[in-house]
Amino acid sequence: MTNPHPQNNNPEKESASSRRSLLTKLWVLLGIVALAELIGIVFAFLKPNPKKSSAADRAAIIVAGPVDTFQPGTVTAFVRGKFYLVRLEDGGFLALSRSCTHLGCTVPWVAKENKFICPCHSSEFDIRGEVISPPAPRALDLYQIIIENNVLKVDTNKRKKRSEFTAGQITYPKKT
């Protein structure tokens, strides 16, 4: 019998142990794969669920009412949708989130002073949601506005962050 490893006096043991170490490696590999799957499952399980039921989807679209009910230069609070509907002097609309961009307090509209004033650290925002006074770092978030058949709806699922106010953010009703 020819010995493939002449310097090794027990070739069988040698190959058995290398086979065993291969098996061990396989087991370790399988273990790692199983662990990775487990972690993946836990993460998927705990992830905030973006796909709500379709009923919740419909509930997220708030029908604000006919366009003409909102006078230019006014702010209307929608408690259920957690937003303010703003009609600017030029007739355009903005739907502002009521959460302060500083640390998330709810900002009330102070009609007397014509601005939003946060009770927590006194950030101030103008009617367009633009920061007048810090510590708030960004203008108030926006929700998407949909106008169909002259009825205004707000999609509270779609919240958009912005750093400042630009004219492009305003939604205008169709001229009739």
Binding site: V79, K82, R98, C105, T106, V107, P108, C118, P119, C120
Partner: peptide
């Protein structure tokens, strides 16, 4: 009350 932040918070 999610609609009313106390001052100071």
């Amino acid at each position: 009350n999610p609609g009313l932040s106390p001052n100071p918070t």
